[in-house]
Design a binder for these strands. Structure first.
Lengths: 231, 231
DNA sequence: TCAAAAGTGTTACAGATACACCCATGT
DNA sequence: ACATGGGTGTATCTGTAACACTTTTGA
C-alpha cells in the first residue's frame, strides 16, 4: 500500500449527542455515558469511538449510536468537527460530532462495554463532562434549535404517531419558549405535512387526542416545489 | 508518547472552497488550482492540504487559504467533513471542508508550489474536478446560500466600502434570483447595519453612488438583543 | 442633450399575532 | 358533576410584494 502522507497523523473519532424528549417532564434530554476507562474515568461523556480505516464517519456514528440505544433507524446528522490539539490529554484526536434525535420512551439507557453507566440528563442540568464535550453539546443544542425552525424534524423526538400537543411541547422544550396552541396547530396543519391516522390516544383520563403521523413523501414533494418549512 | 489507538488511521486534510464575486460579470466565482502532482495530475481541484499533528483544522485551512490568496483576514467557516473511504484513490483520507469569502478584485490568482495554475471559475461553469471536490463544492454553495439568508455575510465578498447596488448584485448572484431594488434597499437599511461613509464611487460615467460599510460592532450588539438577520 | 445608473413612496395583500370559550371523556 | 386536556375562529396588526418616475452626473 502506498501512503499519501508519511508523517504522524491525528487520531479520528466520532462523538454523538443523542437527544430525547421526556414527555412527562416536558424536557429535552441528552444521553450520556459514564466512562469506564481513563482518561476521565468515572466522568460523564458523550458516547463515541474511533473511526476505522475504510469506514465513513456516518457509519461509525451509527455504530456508536446503535451500541448505546439499540436502534438503527434514527435521525442522525453530522454538525461539526472538533480538532483542538489539546482536547484529548493523551494525543491529538480529531472528533467528527453528530447529533441524533430518538424517541425517548423506547430507549431505556443501558451501559455499554465501555461505560460504567448510561443515563438521560436534562439539557438544562448536565454534570461536568469529559474532554471538550460540554462545548460539543452546546454547539449541538444551538444547531438543533436552528434545525427545528427550518426543517420538520420535531417528530423525530416522538413515537411514529403523536398528538399535536406532544409536538407543540417538543418545540417548546427545544426552543425554550411557550407557543400559542391555536396558532401552532393552524400553522403546522396548514403545511399539510401531517396525516390524521384516525386513531386516538389510549388510557388517558380525559378526552383522547387524535394521533398524527409525519408524511415524509409529501414533504419531499413539497421541497422539490420550492416549499420552505418554517417554525 | 502513549497512543490512544494503535491501529491504522485515516489521513486528515482540509479543503477550501474560496468564493469571490466578479462585479463586472455579476457572477459568483470559485478559486481552483490545477494539480501539479498525481493523483489527478493536471486536473482542477479545491486548494487543500494535510493537517499536522498539533494544529487545529481552522489553522490548517487558514494556512492553505493564505498560500493561495496571500490574505489573512478573510471570512472562513467550516461546513462539513467528507470521509468516504474511496474519495481518494490512494488510501482513506478524511477531509474537513471550509468555505471562504474573499473580496475578488484584490486577489489575482497565482499558482502555488503544489499547483501548475490557479484560476477563478464561475460556479455555473466549473470544469471536471479531482476527488469528490464537485460534491464538496455543491455542498458549499448550498451552505453559502443558506448562510447569506440568515447572517449578514454578503459584504465579505466586497471591498470594505461598497455601494448598495453592488451588495444587491452579490445577493442576486448567490441566490440566483433578481431582487426588487427599492425593497432590497428598504430592508437592508432598516436593519441599521450599514454606515454611510459619506464618500462616493469614483470614476464612473454617471451619477456616483454612495459608499457604505458594514457595522460589525452594531451587529454584535443587535444579535445579543435577540435580533435575527434575514435575507 | 443624452445615456446610465442612483435614488425614492405608496398601496395591496398575506401571514403572524393575540385572544376565550365550548367539547369530549374518564373518574 | 367535575376535572382535565382537546379542539376551534376572528379581528388586528405588521411586514412583504408589487410597482414607475425623477435626479444626478459625465461624456
Amino acid at each position: 500500500m502506498s501512503f499519501t502522507y508519511q508523517y504522524a497523523r491525528p487520531a479520528l473519532t466520532v462523538d454523538c449527542v443523542i437527544f430525547g424528549f421526556d414527555a412527562g417532564e416536558h424536557e429535552l434530554r441528552v444521553l450520556l455515558i459514564q466512562r469506564a476507562l481513563p482518561p476521565f474515568e468515572g466522568k460523564w461523556a458523550l458516547p463515541g469511538g474511533f473511526v476505522k480505516v475504510g469506514e465513513n464517519t456516518d457509519v461509525a456514528a451509527r455504530r456508536e449510536l446503535e451500541e448505546e440505544t439499540g436502534l438503527k433507524q434514527v435521525y442522525l446528522e453530522q454538525f461539526k468537527t472538533f480538532s483542538e490539539p489539546k482536547r484529548d490529554p493523551r494525543e491529538h484526536v480529531v472528533s467528527v460530532a453528530y447529533f441524533a434525535l430518538v424517541p425517548f420512551l423506547s430507549h431505556p439507557p443501558k451501559a455499554d462495554t465501555d461505560a460504567k453507566d448510561a443515563a438521560w440528563f436534562s439539557v438544562e442540568d448536565v454534570p461536568s463532562l469529559a474532554f471538550d464535550h460540554k462545548v460539543i453539546l452546546d454547539t449541538a443544542l444551538q444547531r438543533l434549535r436552528l434545525k427545528m425552525q427550518h426543517e420538520p424534524v420535531g417528530f423525530e423526538l416522538l413515537p411514529p404517531q403523536f398528538t399535536l400537543t406532544q409536538l407543540q411541547q417538543v418545540y417548546e422544550a427545544v426552543l425554550g419558549q411557550t407557543l400559542d396552541k391555536r396558532n401552532f396547530r393552524k400553522k403546522i396543519l396548514s403545511m399539510d405535512l401531517l396525516i390524521d391516522t384516525g386513531e386516538v390516544q389510549q388510557d388517558v383520563a380525559h378526552r383522547a387526542a387524535a394521533l398524527w403521523k409525519f408524511d415524509a413523501r409529501r414533504y419531499e414533494k413539497l421541497k422539490k416545489g420550492g416549499f420552505h418549512f418554517a417554525l
